[in-house]
Design a protein around this nucleic acid. Sequence first.
DNA 1: CGTCCCCTTGAATGAAGTCAATACGCGTGG
DNA 2: CCACGCGTATTGACTTCATTCAAGGGGACG
Lengths: 261, 261
Amino acid sequence: MSIRLVRKLSQFTPLSNGDAQALNRLSEARLRLYQPRDTIMHEGEPPKVINLYLDGWAYRHKDLANGKRQITSIFVPGDLCDVNVFVLDRMDHSVSALTSVAVAEISRSAFEQLISEHPRIAQALWWETLVTAAIQREWTTNLGQRDAAERISHLFCELFVRLQSVGLTSGNSCPLPLSQAEIGETTGLTIVSVNRVLQDFRRTKLIALKRKTLTILDFEALKQRAMFNPNYLHLGRTDHAFSTEGEESTGLPSQDEETDD
Amino acid sequence: MSIRLVRKLSQFTPLSNGDAQALNRLSEARLRLYQPRDTIMHEGEPPKVINLYLDGWAYRHKDLANGKRQITSIFVPGDLCDVNVFVLDRMDHSVSALTSVAVAEISRSAFEQLISEHPRIAQALWWETLVTAAIQREWTTNLGQRDAAERISHLFCELFVRLQSVGLTSGNSCPLPLSQAEIGETTGLTIVSVNRVLQDFRRTKLIALKRKTLTILDFEALKQRAMFNPNYLHLGRTDHAFSTEGEESTGLPSQDEETDD
DNA sequence: CGTCCCCTTGAATGAAGTCAATACGCGTGG
DNA sequence: CCACGCGTATTGACTTCATTCAAGGGGACG
């Protein structure tokens, strides 16, 4: 069930069979399913459990007093998110489901036990946290310095590469379960502007986007348009992190990522 | 020397005298000073040391191919930053000095030893990392959903509250060592727009800003203008974090924060 | 006293937003 | 099978906020 979880983490640091088993046991704990538009965590509430996202797309968002809202992160299948949520007292944002989402709810104590007994998992979680922060910085840059077309093409490049790294692309296509309104809430644009940019991208044969499937017809041109540099995703290497003394491996194939340029 | 560092961390979780001493010893290791405009870490380079920021203002920034750049974070005195930099292979952004900055350079091994011997310090660092991430999300929202005046007033509210929490405000004034150009690079606006907003704020008696000193004349109105809600800064409580068994305290006064509304 | 950096202000331009009407796609129920 | 309804996408006309271009001013410093 949580193969994807183990696989994701083992991208960052080699996990032992013991680590993998511990993860599996944990994720079988309490499984919860959400439907599109369901809110998984609410801003302002104290976090009650740790959610390990096993499958599906979700997003963080912040809602403003004036009714506008910003999508601040998008979780694609394989992302974990919020493992450290207990360090803070209350949620400062909400998390909602974009597709149907499977979540393993872990109690605080079970989680603490896990990371104290499995330092490599803790390490991998650090890694994931830092990559998430790097993505957040890039989004800040995207919103602050790029125009409408650049923002949207950047978002597409990023999502494609992230999906590619977890094996969810096929050829130059990938799922994209976002409405134009949601693309707008992610990029700080109105629906109308998003629509015009998309029309333009289609006209110029940069992309095709139909029935929630994105096809990138000219990746080079799209990257150029976005000034996209994937370095901030920190993919493409398996052995980062703190020193690790040898131990038996999980036997999982290490992801092959063809994402660097 | 690193009183401020100890004080900052003890906001998050109580530190023992041993913890505090270890921090002191560490920060006396290699001290380095930077002048305004110096670049402390360069995007693209592998990190060589861990920088503990002892004093001064600095900022992260990302530079784009087209010459534009975005300031993605501002470090005020008391912030630590980049303690976890080794987990990633290369810097995905640069860090530069805004004022003169004092930095303690810690070797990777000394740092690893520190956190393994002093779990509470590790915990406090987690906390700091997560608050930094929360700020980054708020900045994403700021850039995506707020107009020029809202963005700038939000930035001012945030900086004031952060400075207040480390005792660097006096009355309703605080230092603000940013040029209008730099305010623009953090809020995604041009100098000209920043200037016009500031003029307007002065005319309407919201703020005064002169000689790098910001005075907030009407905090309530400024917060309103910004739709500022300080919850994301997660101030105002000392005991978050994972369970902690009792140990002798540092004797440092716990910061009193009057920042909640 | 001149230079550099930063701030200020006006006028023209432009990118994205707003408003509003229409079209499409898909599931439901008659 | 078709009509209806709802959410989503599309398009045009107009407006507005912020940018761009350009010129000038002030203060610090050598």
